[in-house]
């Protein structure tokens, strides 16, 4: 059975016995098992969460407030809080990310040190642990900016200098920035050179070309980036732990300076700090199911749009 010897010593021989390359089969088999293992685990997680969560999962669950010390009722405020968070986040991150991507693809010169530094910063931003963004949000947005506003405009009265939706959203915007930049950059690069040249040859300036030809062509890329960022922002909890998420609120937030409830944070506190973890188990699973449906479907949409962009590029 020692096919290795056969192969190295006698090629003709081993070729005839190709069917019995046991070692090869074994090794390929192991790699195959690794793939199957990952896929199996993924579906097991999905399956268990769907199975355990399906019971409580209903329109009523989604559309009602938690009741009875959060041991009963729905997750409406957490869902709304998550929506507001990702909307404010997108408003901040999408223009910023798009402009940075435009800089990198259109304005940055090849081999420019500054462009390299920008790129490196963005990649660093993508690997910095999310909890650090939370610390930064606390130290910068809440204490430095918010505290500064309070000091100068509110005579030291605490208003902006405490956790709220705005600071949480901006913190989240920083976290999701690289996602947007990468997507938009990819889309900008698929705009054919011929189109840029056509515009420039008609006497358009660089900015006119970007505005009229390049940007309209990359709308779908900007959308992909936004959707991916929203999906990410909806699921991240660490950055908002101390920048705005609240344990429980009886009313929906009314302004940007209010705190908010959040799906992911809700899951976290319900499963670790709830008064009765056992009893609220179905609620926890159903909340997790809602969050998963939200993030995975957003991702799916993004993947579909992205594959279309890639096909167009070919």
């Amino acid at each position: 059975m020692n096919t290795v010897i056969n192969e190295t010593e006698n090629h003709f021989f081993s070729n005839k016995k190709k069917g019995v390359d046991v070692k090869g089969k074994f090794i390929i088999g192991i790699t195959q098992i690794a793939v199957l293992l990952i896929i199996a685990v993924l579906f097991i997680i999905l399956g268990i969460i769907i199975y355990e969560g399906r019971e409580k999962f209903s329109w009523e669950f989604i559309s009602s407030f938690p009741t009875n010390g959060m041991t009963e009722g729905g997750i409406f405020p957490a869902l709304i809080g998550t929506f507001i968070l990702v909307i404010v986040m997108s408003i901040a991150a999408v223009p910023f990310g798009t402009i940075t991507a435009i800089y990198l693809t259109e304005y940055a010169k090849e081999n420019s040190k500054i462009a390299a530094a920008v790129r490196f910063s963005i990649r660093t931003l993508a690997v910095v642990p999310s909890i650090i963004f939370g610390l930064f949000g606390l130290g910068f947005f809440i204490q430095f900016v918010g505290g500064g506003i309070d000091k100068t405009f509110n005579a030291g009265q605490l208003h902006w200098g405490q956790p709220n939706i705005l600071w949480a959203s901006l913190t989240m915007a920083l976290l999701t920035l690289p996602v947007i930049i990468v997507s938009v950059e990819e889309a900008l690069k698929t705009i054919p050179r011929e189109l840029r040249e056509a515009s420039l040859a008609l006497g358009a300036t660089k900015w006119q070309t970007i505005k009229n030809v390049v940007l309209p062509g990359s709308i779908s890329g900007i959308m992909t980036g936004t959707i991916l960022a929203v999906s990410r922002g909806a699921g991240e909890v660490a950055p908002i732990l101390f920048t705005g998420a609240a344990y429980y609120l009886a009313t929906l937030p009314e302004s940007l300076s209010d705190q908010f409830m959040n799906l992911g944070y809700h899951i976290y506190i319900m499963s670790t700090q709830s008064s009765d973890v056992e009893k609220t188990m179905p609620i926890q699973f159903a909340t997790t199911l809602v969050l998963l449906i939200l993030t995975l479907s957003l991702n799916l949409v993004a993947v579909i749009i992205r594959s279309r962009i890639r096909r167009r590029a070919k």
Binding site: I45, G235, E236, Y268, Q284, T288, L291, L292
Partner: peptide, 10 residues
């Protein structure tokens, strides 16, 4: 795309 809070919960 699985949020880490979901994995943690699981």
């Amino acid at each position: 795309a699985f949020p880490s809070v979901v994995i943690g919960f699981f």
